[in-house]
């Protein structure tokens, strides 16, 4: 990487920090909204947790996962979900930029166009991440997970990888608006991750098509399940390799589709 490129990234990052500050101040204007959405998040997370607990009162394992193991998975999933929705799924915004003509001005800003178009900060989701951390720490205690630095480091790297994967996929969905004007359900489709990423892949073992899908075209297994397996000492080297390969593939695909889309784009200007 050349020196000017590094400076360019630093500049973009400074712009991002200034923008985050602005978004935060705007967020504080609507306190009731912030309160209501935080309450909703807590309700959602603990509602699901209570349902799991009730079910585990009647069964010992779900598809081979015990209550404690499911708790580790659910903690990681919520941590991922909160941080992803706070910072990493800004690609979905691209659809609005394209539809409303705002992309023209983004393309003219000095710096990384794709970075600016996809930068995100969603203060509401910070609560989700914090609760995820709390559940995760609690689950480590409940599951009596042995602390192995190597495993924790690998799980952290895998989690970072899953943020990147979500970032690329969100851009892919957002960029689809270059071809399809009304792509609201492309972006809605992204939220399928919310549904599927919290389930161990063994849940789908009897359904070959879905089982294949969660490892390939809807690679949700690599989000929380694989990092949770590493922490629980159930490491599957092929799954870990798969996680990195899938992210590289989606990264490459995103860059290609973005370039193709830009060639096709005819601004509407605003």
């Amino acid at each position: 990487m050349k020196r000017w490129e590094i400076e360019d990234w630093f500049h973009s990052f400074r712009v991002y920090l200034a923008w985050v500050k602005m978004v935060w101040l705007r967020h504080l204007q609507y306190r009731f909204n912030a309160f209501a959405s935080s309450l909703g998040t807590l309700f959602w997370i603990f509602g699901t947790l209570i349902t799991y607990r009730l079910i585990f009162n009647r069964v010992n394992t779900l598809a081979g996962w015990s209550w404690q193991q499911m708790l580790v998975l659910y903690g990681i999933y919520n941590l991922w979900w909160g941080l992803m929705n706070t910072f990493f799924n800004g690609g979905l915004k691209l659809a609005d930029y394209v539809r409303q003509g705002g992309l023209d001005s983004v393309l003219l800003w000095p710096g990384k166009a794709l970075f600016y178009a996809s930068m995100k900060f969603e203060p509401v989701s910070v609560v989700h991440s914090l609760v995820g951390v709390i559940i995760f720490l609690f689950s480590l205690k409940t599951a009596a997970v042995e602390f192995r630095p190597g495993n924790f480091f690998l799980a952290a790297v895998l989690l970072l990888n899953s943020f990147l994967l979500a970032y690329f996929v969100s851009i892919l969905f957002g960029v689809s608006s270059f071809w399809w004007v009304e792509n609201r359900n492309f972006t809605e489709f992204f939220w399928l991750w919310e549904t599927l990423a919290k389930y161990p892949s063994e849940f789908f073992a009897d359904h070959k098509l879905l089982y294949w899908a969660v490892y390939s075209i809807l690679p949700v297994v690599f989000i929380a399940v694989v990092p949770a397996e590493v922490i629980l000492g159930k490491t599957r080297p092929m799954a870990i390799l798969g996680a990195f390969l899938v992210t590289i593939f989606f990264g490459f695909l995103t860059q290609k589709v973005w370039s193709l889309g830009l060639k096709r784009y005819t601004g509407v200007s605003r």
Partner: peptide
């Protein structure tokens, strides 16, 4: 469909 499918898969596991 995928949402319903996953919900059914969940209850099948239960």
């Amino acid at each position: 469909v995928v949402f319903l499918f996953s919900l059914i898969a969940f209850w099948q596991a239960v």
